[in-house]
Design a protein around this nucleic acid. Structure first.
Lengths: 138, 138
DNA sequence: GTATTTTTTTGACAAAGTCCATTTCTTGAT
DNA sequence: ATCAAGAAATGGACTTTGTCAAAAAAATAC
């Protein structure tokens, strides 16, 4: 298990306090928005600019260190669980987001029936529903 | 085949020129943004407020007359193909959006492995890739 | 240590969408 | 037809989320 700093270096990324803190924040609070991550980081290292947060999240996503999720109608979420093929279950009412494994196997829905010449590299699946708590509150 | 006005009435929706025009616009140009729809409608009935477009799109989505699609990094798209279980294929480069049927059958990925007490009502699938044209341009 | 490259900061800006008060239109009943 | 009540549309300000660009600060490689 490499340290966070080693992880960054192995991707040719200069190590900065901001990057380490963002990485920890994403790991500590999965499915957080850029704003929530900024708050967490500020609680840890004092200050960080909004732009730096977006920069870091952007480059981490590119490098595959973290993953973006974009549910309809809410801000982009980030998580550090990458490399496996899992999807997300979002509550329409409270927005709670859960990881779920797909019932159909390891590469669910990765093949469209007619790819129309496209080169497909990812299938993004979001399950929409209502969480137990919000079901009760009805 | 009911007329557009009948369709609205059957959903207890008052019939207005704006609503008819928005419905036609969504039908004529699938996968359009609110802005594109606004333009189309203005070309047809002269003027419509931005708010009215959002109102109409919102209530149509609620009633199931149209469907929202929200690909990461672009505005919400709308289409009038509802009721069947089809998904979308989006080009990362040019943003072109295509309908695709899912290879795994009629209700692909509708069952998550562990639903955690959620009541799931929809599985949203977006395939990401590169369209033939953008592949060539590389 | 120093030079070079990269990152961070700062502040302006843009897109997408929402909120709210007012006016206008639809509908349903007279 | 007309009128009242409720619903929808308008206009304008505002919020949220994210991006752009230039200057300052920090990290890496030598």
């Amino acid at each position: 298990m490499p340290t966070a700093a080693e992880l960054l270096r192995s991707h040719s990324l200069p190590v900065t306090a901001q990057r380490l803190a963002v990485l920890r924040a994403v790991s500590a609070r999965p499915h957080g928005t850029a704003d929530q991550i900024t708050e967490t980081v500020r609680g840890e290292i004092g200050t960080i600019s909004r732009q730096a947060v977006y920069n870091v999240l952007g480059i981490f996503s590119e490098k595959g260190l973290i993953r973006r999720i974009q549910p309809s109608g809410s801000a982009t979420l980030y998580e550090d669980r990458v490399g496996d093929n899992h999807h997300h279950l979002v509550c329409r009412t409270c927005g709670e987001t859960l990881d779920v494994d797909c019932a159909t196997g390891e590469t669910p829905c990765l093949n469209a029936a007619d790819e129309a010449g496209y080169e497909i590299d990812e299938a993004e699946v979001i399950y929409w529903g209502t969480c137990p708590r919000c079901l009760k509150a009805t």
